[in-house]
């Protein structure tokens, strides 16, 4: 085959692969929105579910989703960022850090249902948390921890070594250096990891059903059981309660995840441009 031909074939193949992913994404989103959006209205967004969700709205599940996502991030972000800073700034490569990184990667590969089972046995039963925001948040925190650690590590590694040398050279301690040079410059990357984690947490079903329960009440405390949009969607569809309401819930879930991504992206862009301007 001539060079121009192979070039053409390669280009066509790569173009096809790239466009296919976009097309698939668009089809999924448009299908869900087309099926669900007609049933989304103010009453659906602000009302309580009636008859197990056959009628009424999904307000408690919207609250439950946000609350569960927030609880899991509040737990996972300090832990994950802390672990990443420790691994990158406070240790030299050693068998211990190899084991820690291997552990993190393994954690990322564990199926979510296993996290759910563990959360149920340990947090819900053993620690008597029962089905609750806390038990669900802890389980999801464990699940998203590897994502946060990995993305934070990458972001920290991207901070130029020269900045660190300048900082140390001016008499900064290690923690001062981390606080004034590493973290501000790694922030956009860290936020990306947090967004990815939030998306995973609010989209999760298996681990959540086992640990946060499926209660349809508005959660009032950290120990209240709750139902997230994703779980609601799952139950409505699987138990054949109402396919219309299921799609409507799915549509709201997709739109809210999209909105959060756009919002966080804008936030990142702003913080980056501010960091560059400073």
């Amino acid at each position: 085959m001539k060079r121009q031909h192979s070039q053409l074939v390669a280009f066509a193949g790569l173009w096809f692969a790239a466009s296919l992913t976009i097309v698939i994404l668009a089809i999924i989103i448009m299908y869900i929105l087309a099926q669900g959006l007609p049933y989304v209205n103010l009453e659906f967004l602000t009302g309580r579910p009636l008859e197990q969700g056959r009628e009424g709205g999904i307000f408690p599940t919207i609250l439950g989703t946000l609350a569960l996502g927030a609880v899991s991030l509040v737990l996972a972000v300090p832990l994950g960022v802390g672990a990443a800073v420790f691994l990158t700034e406070y240790t030299r490569p050693s068998p211990l850090t190899t084991i820690m990184r291997f552990g993190t990667d393994s954690l990322a590969g564990v199926p979510s249902i296993i996290f759910g089972l563990f959360g149920f046995i340990f947090f819900v039963t053993r620690l008597h948390m029962s089905w609750s925001l806390l038990a669900g948040g802890l389980t999801l925190a464990l699940m998203v921890l590897p994502t946060i650690i990995r993305t934070t590590e990458e972001a920290i590694r991207a901070v130029p070594v020269a900045y660190r040398e300048v900082s140390y050279g001016l008499g900064a301690s290690r923690w001062q250096m981390v606080r004034t040079v590493v973290l501000p410059n790694a922030l956009p990357g860290i936020i990306t990891g947090i967004i990815l984690s939030f998306g995973r947490a609010v989209g999760e079903t298996a681990a959540v059903i086992f640990t946060a329960g499926t209660a349809l009440n508005i959660p009032t405390s950290i120990l209240s059981p709750t139902r997230t949009m994703a779980v609601h969607f799952y139950i409505l569809a699987v138990e054949g309660i109402s396919l219309q309401k299921a799609y409507a819930t799915g549509a709201v879930l997709i739109i809210s995840i999209l909105a959060i991504n756009v919002l966080a992206n804008a936030l990142i862009t702003r913080s980056v441009s501010r960091a560059v301007r400073r």
């Binding site: 130029p160 300048v166 001016l170 560059v276 400073r278």
Partner: peptide, 20 residues
Amino acid sequence: ATLRRRVGMVFALPVALPMT
């Protein structure tokens, strides 16, 4: 830290930290 304040270093490549 005290030593590095008493003996300051200027590097080969100009490095301004990303701040004012």
